[in-house]
Design a protein around this nucleic acid. Structure first.
Lengths: 237, 237
DNA sequence: TATTTAGGTGTAAATATTACACTTATTAGA
DNA sequence: TCTAATAAGTGTAATATTTACACCTAAATA
């Protein structure tokens, strides 16, 4: 075996912090936990954890997400590496932030309780520890970009959803109002939605048709594309 | 002082690897070094180094870039964190990749020689060690996206450049041909270029006017924008 | 002074985006 | 049972953006 040439270099704890997005009727929300150890005990924080030797970064992020939500196979994407020297007062730590999109109704309530976690509307977040606020801002930007580029919003909705719900979601991602007719035309022209003949009457007397994201159609679309990406852009202001 | 609650967690070397883009007349190029230590001694590699305790990730990436090129204040942007368990055979290492855009004629020749570094055309790269090829692919994608979104190509050109040169650059970034008239209209309508009254006659008898990136105009444009970003998109195929 | 070379220029057609208002299905309450 | 209320659903015209496309110009050199 080779001698380890890396003998004299510094080693650092590598943290993973996850920005967990959910969507609840009107509002984009984040799942935050109440930190139960010092420093900053009792303050709000992103769900996080440390990288272990036997897992990749993606695996670690996924493990940490599951630890809080009980969910597996969740949309999870690396966001950015945060490495300011003093970002964690305990010790110099590098944090790789991930963001994930989950169906807000679809998580393990006991686990969430165990971590004293709570959903906060994205526009009414508490103070966060360390540089977590910076991470959240980065995630908001990334989500906006992602949603403009790929039909990713579906991850935040239940399997079946109505177009008005989907529009609400996009409106809260972009923090702007969208025209109903233009929105429908655009989203339907992506050719990734399948209309069911069920109606959802929770929010109106008339009821709105339920749609389903059709991953077969999506794959087909992707294949027909030239890498430009399916796109849903917010209107220019 | 608080006891260190992080006592029992794993620590890892944190590497920084930089994808260094340059542009030479016709071709987008990468600056690669010949690795002079085991493992993989003698093979081609991205310029890299390890994070030290007294520097942020950005500072470390910048230090490493300067080490090879002699250049400071260079366009440098974090790309992605690579963390597969076995990515480095010596030891489990996390690498944060950065990419940078430099003027290819504007680097310290002695340093480059010292590292046995060489510029390679982007479409004719040698085999690279570890997961460096994955990093390069990610950087190409990011550069494409960045160039479509912000007027970033200027970083790769000398202070004064002609529109045909700039077009060449975009053509090699997108690996496609662009229409001369449409390109000019688009790039000029961004309102960030200043025409000088000098001509560059290196490549034609008639000579082409030299332009300069006008950062004041750029700032003004940015201010007038609604965050959508100045954009130069490749034509849809 | 004719030829060669790359630089420079405009317009029309096609496509994409935006703005905008009324009808429909259903429920609840008079 | 009729009326009012509510959110869902639909089409078109105006504007803006993107694309396709071909000839003239300036300078050098043979």
């Amino acid at each position: 075996m080779l001698p380890n040439q890396y003998e004299n270099i510094d080693r650092f704890p590598v943290a993973l912090d996850t920005i967990i997005f959910g969507f609840d009727r009107q509002n984009l929300k984040l799942l935050l936990i109440k930190r139960d150890f010092e420093p900053e005990k009792g303050n709000w924080s992103l769900m996080g954890g440390f990288l272990e030797a036997d897992e990749s970064l993606d695996e670690a992020a996924s493990r940490i997400l599951t630890k809080l939500t009980g969910l597996k196979n969740i949309y999870l994407e690396q966001l950015y590496g945060f490495g300011e020297i003093d970002r964690d007062p305990v010790e110099r730590t590098i944090s790789i932030a991930y963001y994930s999109l989950i169906n807000i109704h679809d998580h393990n309530k006991e686990l969430v309780e165990k971590y004293s976690a709570r959903w906060f509307p994205i526009d009414d977040l508490p103070d966060l520890i360390f540089d977590h606020h910076k991470m959240v801002e980065a995630a908001k930007g990334r989500l906006r970009h992602k949603a403009a580029t790929q039909p990713v919003g579906f991850e935040l909705l239940p399997e079946k959803f109505t177009l008005p719900e989907l529009q609400q979601l996009y409106e809260s991602i972009y923090e702007t109002d969208l025209d109903k007719r233009n929105f429908r035309r655009r989203i339907l022209s992506m050719n990734v939605l399948e209309k069911t003949d069920e109606k959802q009457k929770k929010f109106s007397k008339k009821g709105a048709y339920l749609y389903r994201f059709d991953s077969k159609k999506f794959e087909k679309q992707k294949a027909e594309e030239n890498g430009a990406g399916l796109s849903f852009k917010p209107p220019k202001v």
